[in-house]
Simulated scan of single mutants.
Amino acid sequence: MELDILGLLLYCVPAIITGAIAFFFFREHVENENNRRNFLIQKDLQKDALPLRLQAYERISLFLERIKPSKLLLRAKPTSSKKEDYESLLIANIEQEFNHNLAQQIYVTDQCWSITSTAKNATIQIIRKATLSDKVDSADKLREVILSEMMEKRSPSDAALSFIKEEVSDIW
């Protein structure tokens, strides 16, 4: 009886060890195959998404260039001599450009979109602050004050563009 149990153990122990090794081997193999498939799917998705992401960065860069005060003032000429009308025209141009590019936030990082929005709002604040100045009494004087202020300091768009350039270089 003891001999039968010992004989049974001598047959079962190697079978259990072989079964455990086979189990771990196949589990590892299946896990590696799943990881490989996921990698290939991710690679295909990245290949399709990269051009869309780069296009979004291009559009945001164009937006930031268009709302630079120096370029905005050249493009949007005053329709009247009233500084308030010109302020409204400039802000409407910025908002229109921004709304035209709203969908780009899907393709860029949250931080990039936040910096873009901040640059837009800072540009609007520059315009509003200049309008409130005592030196400004006409649309032409408003243009002059904004342009002279932009000569002295960097525009919000420049800072945002620098960030975008860094982010795009990280993609490569």
Rank of each mutant, 00 (worst) to 15 (best):
E2V: 10
I5S: 08
V13S: 05
I16F: 15
I21C: 05
I21T: 06
I21Y: 08
A22V: 15
F24M: 09
F25G: 06
H29I: 10
E33R: 14
N34S: 08
R37S: 13
N38I: 11
F39K: 14
Q42T: 13
K43E: 15
Q46L: 09
Q46V: 01
K47D: 05
L52K: 07
L52E: 06
Q55M: 14
A56I: 07
E58P: 00
R59L: 10
I60D: 02
L62Q: 08
E65G: 03
K68H: 11
P69F: 10
A76N: 10
A76R: 06
K82W: 00
E84W: 00
D85E: 13
Y86R: 06
E87S: 10
E87P: 01
L89G: 04
L89A: 11
N93V: 03
Q96W: 02
E97N: 12
H100T: 10
Q104I: 04
D110I: 02
T116C: 12
T116G: 05
T118Q: 14
T118G: 01
N121W: 04
A122Y: 05
Q125K: 14
Q125A: 15
I127Y: 07
R128H: 07
T131W: 01
L132F: 05
L132P: 00
M150P: 01
M151G: 01
E152W: 03
K153F: 07
S162I: 05
F163G: 03
K165Q: 13
W172H: 12
